[in-house]
């Protein structure tokens, strides 16, 4: 597909105490494609997301976005640069409506900070309207019906909270979107909706990194799959390659099979 990747991860490592949570993992993320990151529980998938977003500092390796090394940048600068994420359990801000939650996601597009707020509130009001329009678009796209928008976000059912979270990350207009098990807890029809949505999001020209256990979903929407186990990259390739890879099958079925 496209020749230059949007983001590259090279030799990334992270240790917790004596345990290597991630060691020497490298792969590329290409704009317009869904890349899946799979592996057994505890393989280091969430740690990788935390390293890419800068929530954790890595012990070795580099992360670059659009050719620029961002390894040393703090989390908020990566957010501003266009890296957005969702969480294993939805992290919806309490005490805020659905719409405000998603408007908050558009933070990086605001021009007006503290001083403008105080001295030129009318500019901020206009900006709020723009952000609300953006948020409305994202909510519609993520499939959250308008009847919910003024409700407290934490009052929504679980499946809808997941959608609100995706809408919030879309409001950030991400170049790179990292999704941590977005299908967990969803029923089959919700999962199908989600698959369609994620394919569309990638088709916008964004790079999507999908951490997911639902193999049907992974196989159907990703162009590229990276398999990790015990913090190491085990295999990498197209869904077809991965489905027939012996190491991967062994890792998923257990060590006994690998020995035999």
């Amino acid at each position: 597909m496209s020749s230059t990747p949007l983001a590259s991860i090279k030799g990334l490592s992270k240790r917790f105490g004596g345990i290597a949570a991630v060691s020497d993992v490298s792969f590329d993320l290409v704009a317009g494609e869904v890349t899946a990151l799979i592996g057994p529980n505890g393989a280091g998938k969430t740690t990788l997301i935390n390293l890419v977003t800068g929530v954790l500092a890595c012990d070795g390796g580099t992360i670059s976005l659009e050719g620029e090394d961002i390894t040393a940048r703090p989390t908020h600068q990566r957010g501003t640069a266009g890296i957005a994420r969702t969480y294993q359990t939805p992290q919806i801000a309490h005490g805020m409506s659905v719409l405000t939650n998603v408007m908050a996601g558009a933070y990086r597009f605001g021009q007006h900070g503290l001083l403008s707020s105080v001295f030129r509130p009318w500019v901020v009001m206009k900006e709020n309207d723009e952000m609300a329009a953006r948020a409305a678009q994202c909510l519609t796209r993520a499939g959250v019906a308008e009847q919910w928008w003024q409700r407290l976000a934490t009052d929504l059912p679980y499946g809808l909270q997941r959608r609100v979270e995706i809408a919030r990350s879309l409001a950030q207009d991400p170049k790179l979107l990292l999704l941590d098990e977005p299908a967990a807890g969803l029923n089959p029809s919700e999962t199908a909706d989600l698959s369609r949505l994620l394919s569309e999001i990638a088709a916008d020209g964004r790079a999507v990194l999908l951490v997911e256990h639902d193999m049907g979903m992974v196989m159907s929407i990703s162009s590229h799959i990276v398999v990790v186990n015990f913090g190491r990259k085990l295999a990498e390739g197209t869904p077809k390659d991965i489905a027939s890879n012996k190491d991967v099958i062994a890792a998923y079925l257990g060590a006994d099979e690998a020995v035999a």
Binding site: H76, H94, A104, G105, M131
Partner: peptide, 25 residues
């Protein structure tokens, strides 16, 4: 006026989770 704009929304997200706020910039 301070809490009405994006600064205020950022604060309210921060109240629930600093991590989420940081990741959105």
């Amino acid at each position: 006026s301070l809490v009405d704009g994006r600064f205020g929304r950022g604060l309210m997200v921060l109240r629930t989770s600093e991590l989420v706020a940081a990741c959105m910039g």
